[in-house]
Computed example of a mutant assay.
Amino acid sequence: MSIFSDNIRFLRGKKEITQQELADTLIITRSRYVSYEDGRSEPPIEVLVKISKFFNISIDLLVSVDIRKYPLDEILRLPDNRIVLPVVVDKLGNNSIEIIPQKASMGYLSGYSDPEYIESLQRISLPFLTNGKYRAFPAQGDSMPPFKDGSYIIGKYLERIDDLKENKSYVFVTLNDGISYKRFKSKNEKSITVTADNSFYEPYEISFYEIVEIWQYASGIFPEDFEPYHFENHNLKDMFLELRKDIRDLNIKVSGLKEEQNSIG
Protein backbone atom coordinates (compact mmCIF):
# COMPACT_ATOMS: atom_id res chain seq x y z
CA MET A 1 0.00 0.00 0.00
CA SER A 2 1.04 3.63 -0.53
CA ILE A 3 -0.25 7.12 0.20
CA PHE A 4 -1.57 7.29 -3.36
CA SER A 5 -3.43 3.96 -3.15
CA ASP A 6 -4.90 4.90 0.25
CA ASN A 7 -5.99 8.27 -1.13
CA ILE A 8 -7.81 6.97 -4.20
CA ARG A 9 -9.52 4.25 -2.16
CA PHE A 10 -10.65 6.90 0.33
CA LEU A 11 -11.80 9.36 -2.34
CA ARG A 12 -13.71 6.70 -4.25
CA GLY A 13 -15.50 5.79 -1.05
CA LYS A 14 -16.46 9.41 -0.42
CA LYS A 15 -18.00 9.57 -3.90
CA GLU A 16 -19.79 6.27 -3.27
CA ILE A 17 -18.84 4.76 -6.63
CA THR A 18 -17.62 1.26 -7.42
CA GLN A 19 -14.22 0.28 -8.73
CA GLN A 20 -15.83 -0.67 -12.02
CA GLU A 21 -17.54 2.73 -12.36
CA LEU A 22 -14.30 4.57 -11.75
CA ALA A 23 -12.40 2.28 -14.12
CA ASP A 24 -14.99 3.00 -16.82
CA THR A 25 -14.56 6.75 -16.25
CA LEU A 26 -10.79 6.38 -16.61
CA ILE A 27 -11.27 4.14 -19.68
CA ILE A 28 -9.24 1.28 -18.20
CA THR A 29 -10.12 -2.23 -17.02
CA ARG A 30 -11.30 -2.86 -13.48
CA SER A 31 -8.38 -5.18 -12.75
CA ARG A 32 -5.95 -2.49 -13.82
CA TYR A 33 -7.59 0.06 -11.55
CA VAL A 34 -7.68 -2.40 -8.63
CA SER A 35 -3.91 -2.83 -8.96
CA TYR A 36 -3.52 0.93 -8.33
CA GLU A 37 -5.85 0.87 -5.34
CA ASP A 38 -4.09 -2.18 -3.87
CA GLY A 39 -0.68 -0.58 -4.37
CA ARG A 40 0.58 -3.36 -6.64
CA SER A 41 1.32 -0.96 -9.52
CA GLU A 42 1.38 2.75 -10.29
CA PRO A 43 -0.58 4.50 -13.05
CA PRO A 44 1.17 6.15 -16.02
CA ILE A 45 1.09 9.92 -16.13
CA GLU A 46 -1.92 10.11 -18.47
CA VAL A 47 -4.04 8.01 -16.09
CA LEU A 48 -2.73 9.90 -13.07
CA VAL A 49 -3.86 13.16 -14.66
CA LYS A 50 -7.34 11.71 -15.26
CA ILE A 51 -7.58 10.57 -11.63
CA SER A 52 -6.42 14.00 -10.45
CA LYS A 53 -9.04 15.80 -12.54
CA PHE A 54 -11.80 13.36 -11.57
CA PHE A 55 -11.31 13.94 -7.84
CA ASN A 56 -10.32 17.61 -8.30
CA ILE A 57 -7.18 16.98 -6.22
CA SER A 58 -3.73 18.09 -7.41
CA ILE A 59 -1.29 15.31 -8.31
CA ASP A 60 1.26 16.39 -5.68
CA LEU A 61 -1.36 16.02 -2.94
CA LEU A 62 -2.57 12.68 -4.28
CA VAL A 63 0.89 11.11 -4.16
CA SER A 64 2.43 12.84 -1.12
CA VAL A 65 -0.23 13.79 1.44
CA ASP A 66 -2.53 11.51 3.43
CA ILE A 67 -5.71 13.44 2.73
CA ARG A 68 -7.70 11.21 5.08
CA LYS A 69 -6.37 13.43 7.87
CA TYR A 70 -8.13 16.50 6.48
CA PRO A 71 -11.95 16.92 6.37
CA LEU A 72 -12.89 17.24 2.72
CA ASP A 73 -15.71 19.63 3.62
CA GLU A 74 -13.09 22.10 4.87
CA ILE A 75 -11.00 22.04 1.70
CA LEU A 76 -11.31 25.14 -0.44
CA ARG A 77 -11.46 24.06 -4.06
CA LEU A 78 -9.66 26.27 -6.53
CA PRO A 79 -9.47 26.38 -10.35
CA ASP A 80 -6.83 24.58 -12.38
CA ASN A 81 -7.01 21.52 -10.16
CA ARG A 82 -5.34 23.19 -7.17
CA ILE A 83 -6.37 23.12 -3.55
CA VAL A 84 -5.67 25.30 -0.52
CA LEU A 85 -5.89 23.06 2.54
CA PRO A 86 -7.13 23.23 5.16
CA VAL A 87 -9.58 26.10 5.64
CA VAL A 88 -9.34 26.61 9.38
CA VAL A 89 -12.01 28.34 11.44
CA ASP A 90 -12.02 29.34 15.11
CA LYS A 91 -14.55 28.30 17.77
CA LEU A 92 -16.96 31.02 16.61
CA GLY A 93 -16.77 29.88 13.01
CA ASN A 94 -14.66 32.82 11.84
CA ASN A 95 -12.18 32.15 9.05
CA SER A 96 -8.61 32.00 10.32
CA ILE A 97 -6.03 34.14 8.52
CA GLU A 98 -2.62 32.53 8.05
CA ILE A 99 0.30 34.91 8.55
CA ILE A 100 3.33 34.49 6.29
CA PRO A 101 6.39 35.41 8.41
CA GLN A 102 8.73 38.16 7.22
CA LYS A 103 11.78 35.92 7.45
CA ALA A 104 10.09 32.95 5.78
CA SER A 105 8.37 34.80 2.93
CA MET A 106 10.89 33.52 0.38
CA GLY A 107 9.87 29.96 1.24
CA TYR A 108 6.23 30.59 0.45
CA LEU A 109 6.61 29.58 -3.20
CA SER A 110 7.68 26.10 -2.19
CA GLY A 111 5.29 25.82 0.74
CA TYR A 112 1.99 27.35 -0.40
CA SER A 113 0.63 23.94 -1.51
CA ASP A 114 2.14 22.00 1.41
CA PRO A 115 -0.51 21.35 4.10
CA GLU A 116 2.12 20.96 6.82
CA TYR A 117 3.67 24.33 5.93
CA ILE A 118 0.30 26.11 5.97
CA GLU A 119 -0.73 24.45 9.22
CA SER A 120 2.53 25.55 10.87
CA LEU A 121 1.77 29.25 10.31
CA GLN A 122 0.44 31.53 13.02
CA ARG A 123 -3.17 32.61 12.63
CA ILE A 124 -5.46 35.45 13.54
CA SER A 125 -9.20 36.00 13.08
CA LEU A 126 -10.84 39.27 12.09
CA PRO A 127 -14.66 39.11 12.35
CA PHE A 128 -15.15 41.76 9.64
CA LEU A 129 -13.34 39.59 7.07
CA THR A 130 -15.76 36.85 6.08
CA ASN A 131 -17.00 34.99 2.99
CA GLY A 132 -13.64 34.10 1.56
CA LYS A 133 -10.16 32.77 2.16
CA TYR A 134 -7.70 35.31 3.59
CA ARG A 135 -3.94 35.32 4.11
CA ALA A 136 -1.52 37.97 5.46
CA PHE A 137 1.66 38.74 3.51
CA PRO A 138 4.66 40.81 4.66
CA ALA A 139 5.35 44.14 2.96
CA GLN A 140 8.93 44.64 1.80
CA GLY A 141 10.76 47.38 -0.07
CA ASP A 142 9.65 50.89 -1.01
CA SER A 143 7.24 50.03 -3.83
CA MET A 144 4.25 49.46 -1.53
CA PRO A 145 3.26 52.79 0.09
CA PRO A 146 1.72 53.31 2.58
CA PHE A 147 2.96 49.85 3.60
CA LYS A 148 6.54 49.62 4.79
CA ASP A 149 8.77 46.92 6.24
CA GLY A 150 7.04 45.39 9.24
CA SER A 151 3.56 45.86 7.78
CA TYR A 152 1.28 43.04 6.65
CA ILE A 153 -1.11 43.10 3.73
CA ILE A 154 -4.19 40.92 4.17
CA GLY A 155 -5.48 39.55 0.89
CA LYS A 156 -8.62 37.67 -0.10
CA TYR A 157 -7.99 34.77 -2.48
CA LEU A 158 -9.02 35.52 -6.05
CA GLU A 159 -10.02 32.48 -8.07
CA ARG A 160 -9.97 33.88 -11.60
CA ILE A 161 -7.76 36.33 -13.45
CA ASP A 162 -10.90 37.62 -15.14
CA ASP A 163 -12.07 38.89 -11.73
CA LEU A 164 -9.22 41.43 -11.53
CA LYS A 165 -10.51 45.00 -11.41
CA GLU A 166 -8.67 47.93 -12.93
CA ASN A 167 -6.78 50.17 -10.47
CA LYS A 168 -7.46 47.81 -7.55
CA SER A 169 -4.56 46.51 -5.44
CA TYR A 170 -3.56 42.86 -5.19
CA VAL A 171 -0.87 40.62 -3.78
CA PHE A 172 0.59 38.70 -6.70
CA VAL A 173 2.54 35.51 -5.99
CA THR A 174 4.64 34.75 -9.07
CA LEU A 175 7.41 32.37 -10.03
CA ASN A 176 9.87 35.19 -10.77
CA ASP A 177 9.12 37.87 -8.16
CA GLY A 178 7.68 35.82 -5.31
CA ILE A 179 5.33 38.00 -3.23
CA SER A 180 4.61 41.50 -4.55
CA TYR A 181 1.93 44.11 -3.88
CA LYS A 182 0.84 45.85 -7.07
CA ARG A 183 -2.06 47.65 -8.70
CA PHE A 184 -3.75 45.96 -11.66
CA LYS A 185 -3.85 48.07 -14.83
CA SER A 186 -4.86 45.91 -17.80
CA LYS A 187 -4.97 42.41 -19.29
CA ASN A 188 -4.33 40.87 -22.69
CA GLU A 189 -4.45 37.32 -24.02
CA LYS A 190 -1.17 36.22 -22.42
CA SER A 191 -0.37 38.57 -19.56
CA ILE A 192 -1.47 41.31 -17.20
CA THR A 193 0.06 44.75 -16.65
CA VAL A 194 0.61 45.92 -13.08
CA THR A 195 2.20 48.95 -11.46
CA ALA A 196 3.55 49.92 -8.05
CA ASP A 197 1.93 52.72 -6.06
CA ASN A 198 5.39 54.25 -5.90
CA SER A 199 5.47 56.19 -9.19
CA PHE A 200 9.24 55.80 -9.51
CA TYR A 201 8.71 52.23 -10.69
CA GLU A 202 7.55 51.59 -14.23
CA PRO A 203 4.52 49.38 -14.98
CA TYR A 204 5.43 45.90 -16.14
CA GLU A 205 3.81 42.74 -17.47
CA ILE A 206 3.31 39.39 -15.71
CA SER A 207 2.60 36.43 -17.97
CA PHE A 208 -0.22 34.08 -16.98
CA TYR A 209 2.33 31.27 -16.78
CA GLU A 210 4.22 33.04 -13.97
CA ILE A 211 1.17 33.61 -11.76
CA VAL A 212 0.86 31.22 -8.83
CA GLU A 213 -1.76 33.00 -6.73
CA ILE A 214 -3.63 36.32 -6.62
CA TRP A 215 -4.98 37.85 -3.39
CA GLN A 216 -7.18 40.96 -3.50
CA TYR A 217 -6.27 43.62 -0.94
CA ALA A 218 -8.68 43.43 2.00
CA SER A 219 -6.97 45.10 4.96
CA GLY A 220 -3.60 45.97 6.45
CA ILE A 221 -1.67 45.47 9.67
CA PHE A 222 0.77 48.29 10.41
CA PRO A 223 3.72 48.48 12.83
CA GLU A 224 3.16 50.00 16.26
CA ASP A 225 4.97 53.21 15.30
CA PHE A 226 2.81 53.82 12.23
CA GLU A 227 1.16 57.28 12.29
CA PRO A 228 -1.01 59.13 9.76
CA TYR A 229 1.73 61.63 8.93
CA HIS A 230 3.64 58.82 7.26
CA PHE A 231 1.29 59.29 4.33
CA GLU A 232 2.61 62.83 3.91
CA ASN A 233 6.17 61.56 4.12
CA HIS A 234 5.41 59.10 1.35
CA ASN A 235 3.98 61.91 -0.78
CA LEU A 236 7.12 63.97 -0.29
CA LYS A 237 9.29 60.98 -1.08
CA ASP A 238 7.26 60.32 -4.20
CA MET A 239 7.98 63.89 -5.37
CA PHE A 240 11.73 63.26 -5.19
CA LEU A 241 11.36 59.87 -6.84
CA GLU A 242 9.29 61.41 -9.62
CA LEU A 243 12.00 64.03 -10.12
CA ARG A 244 14.63 61.28 -10.37
CA LYS A 245 12.43 59.51 -12.88
CA ASP A 246 12.08 62.67 -15.01
CA ILE A 247 15.85 63.19 -14.95
CA ARG A 248 16.40 59.58 -15.97
CA ASP A 249 13.92 59.90 -18.86
CA LEU A 250 15.56 63.15 -19.95
CA ASN A 251 18.99 61.51 -20.00
CA ILE A 252 17.59 58.72 -22.18
CA LYS A 253 16.15 61.25 -24.64
CA VAL A 254 19.40 63.22 -24.77
CA SER A 255 21.37 60.03 -25.43
CA GLY A 256 18.96 59.16 -28.23
CA LEU A 257 19.37 62.59 -29.83
CA LYS A 258 23.15 62.29 -29.69
CA GLU A 259 23.00 58.89 -31.40
CA GLU A 260 20.79 60.33 -34.14
CA GLN A 261 23.15 63.26 -34.68
CA ASN A 262 26.14 60.92 -34.84
CA SER A 263 24.40 58.68 -37.38
CA ILE A 264 23.53 61.69 -39.55
CA GLY A 265 27.03 63.10 -39.32
Rank of each mutant, 00 (worst) to 15 (best):
Y117A: 12
D238H: 11
I192H: 00
I192Y: 00
K185S: 05
I247H: 02
I214A: 00
D225I: 11
G141L: 04
L62I: 10
S151D: 10
F231I: 14
G111P: 01
D142M: 01
G155S: 03
I221T: 02
D249K: 11
E37L: 01
K185C: 12
A196C: 01
E210I: 08
R135P: 05
D149A: 11
K258E: 08
P223V: 08
R248L: 13
I57C: 00
Y36H: 06
A218H: 03
S125L: 12
R12F: 02
N167W: 10
T18E: 12
G265M: 02
Q122M: 11
V194N: 06
S143T: 02
V173F: 00
R244D: 10
D80F: 04
F128I: 10
R32S: 15
K148F: 10
G155T: 02
Q19F: 10
V194C: 12
P127G: 01
G107I: 08
L126E: 09
A104L: 15
E242V: 11
Y108Q: 13
I161V: 07
L257S: 14
F172S: 00
L250F: 03
N7L: 00
D249I: 09
Q20T: 14
F226G: 04
I97R: 06
E189W: 02
Y117C: 11
S219W: 07
K103R: 14
F184W: 03
Q102I: 10
S151T: 04
P71G: 01
P79W: 02
L250H: 08
L109D: 01
G256I: 03
A218C: 05
Y36L: 06
V173T: 07
L164W: 00
F240A: 07
E232T: 14
L76C: 14
L243N: 08
F128E: 11
L62W: 06
I124C: 13
S169K: 11
S52H: 04
I247E: 07
K182G: 07
I59Q: 04
D66P: 07
F226T: 06
F55M: 01
Q261M: 08
L61T: 11
R123H: 05
D66T: 12
R160L: 09
V49K: 13
E37A: 06
D225E: 12
I252H: 14
I57M: 05
D90Q: 12
P203Q: 05
R32T: 15
K185W: 10
V63M: 09
S31D: 15
